[in-house]
Computed example of a mutant assay.
Amino acid sequence: MADAAGLLGWLEASSLSAAMRGSLWMYPIVEIVHITGFAILVGSVAMFDLRVLGFARALPVQALGRHLLPWALAALALIVPAGLMMFSAHPHDFASNKVFQLKLALIGAAGVNAALFHAGPWRDAGAWNEGVQAPPLARAQALLSLAIWLAVISCGRLLAYT
């Protein structure tokens, strides 16, 4: 616990933290980058999940996955650094905020759900690639994914009020 407090103190005293707090435009610009990245990530995930749920079955799910994955990864390249920069502005406040903690836990759950999907139903995606309903587990994971990401977005918005 002392190590975490020390790390948060070091981060709050950093020049990045001071710049994020001291500049009129830096925090809002970084937040716009973060939100743009989330829009791209969640948009990509939602399009894929909706396809798995049965929308646009004529579209090959494997081709859609190959198309959307680079967009999702590029979005992470925006989200993670921007999120760390915003966190650096008020690390003690964020670290102790229950909504922020829930947001991080939900992002972790989304990652676990995606990993389980790729280790499970996705291995047999050739059997339901086009024109065939995805297996029940794949559909359940897609629905869970959509729900988790909606909750992550909700937490992100609630951070402004908590």
Score class of each variant (00 low, 15 high):
M1S: 13
M1R: 13
D3Y: 11
A4L: 15
A4R: 09
G6S: 10
G6N: 05
G9A: 03
S14D: 04
M20H: 09
S23E: 05
S23W: 04
L24M: 02
L24K: 15
L24P: 08
W25L: 10
M26G: 01
M26F: 15
V30I: 14
I32P: 06
T36G: 12
G37W: 06
G37D: 01
G37Q: 02
A39E: 10
A39S: 11
A39I: 09
I40V: 15
V42W: 14
S44Y: 02
S44Q: 09
V45A: 13
A46P: 12
A46S: 11
M47F: 14
F48T: 01
F48L: 12
D49S: 14
L50R: 15
R51Q: 08
V52L: 08
L53I: 09
F55T: 14
A56L: 13
A58V: 07
L59S: 07
L59P: 02
P60W: 08
V61M: 12
V61P: 05
Q62W: 10
Q62A: 06
Q62T: 14
A63Y: 03
G65I: 11
R66S: 05
H67C: 07
L69N: 13
L69F: 14
P70M: 15
P70G: 08
A72V: 11
L73M: 12
L73G: 04
A75R: 07
V80L: 07
V80W: 10
G83A: 10
M85S: 14
M85G: 11
F87I: 00
F87M: 03
P91V: 12
H92L: 13
D93W: 10
D93M: 05
F94G: 07
S96G: 10
S96Y: 09
N97K: 01
K98R: 14
K98Q: 11
K98A: 12
F100S: 00
F100G: 00
L102I: 08
L106C: 01
L106H: 06
I107W: 06
A109K: 01
V112P: 12
A115L: 15
L116V: 09
L116M: 14
F117I: 10
H118Q: 14
H118P: 07
H118Y: 13
G120Y: 07
P121A: 15
P121Y: 10
W122Q: 00
W122N: 03
W122V: 03
A125S: 15
G126W: 05
G126H: 04
A127T: 04
N129Y: 02
G131K: 13
Q133N: 10
Q133D: 15
A134D: 10
R139S: 10
A140K: 01
A140Q: 12
Q141M: 14
A142E: 08
A142Y: 04
L144W: 01
L144S: 01
S145I: 11
S145T: 09
S145E: 04
L146Q: 02
W149F: 13
L150G: 11
V152G: 04
V152N: 00
V152K: 03
I153P: 00
I153E: 05
S154Q: 12
C155I: 03
G156R: 07
G156A: 02
L158N: 11
L158C: 00
L159P: 01
A160S: 06
T162G: 15
T162W: 14
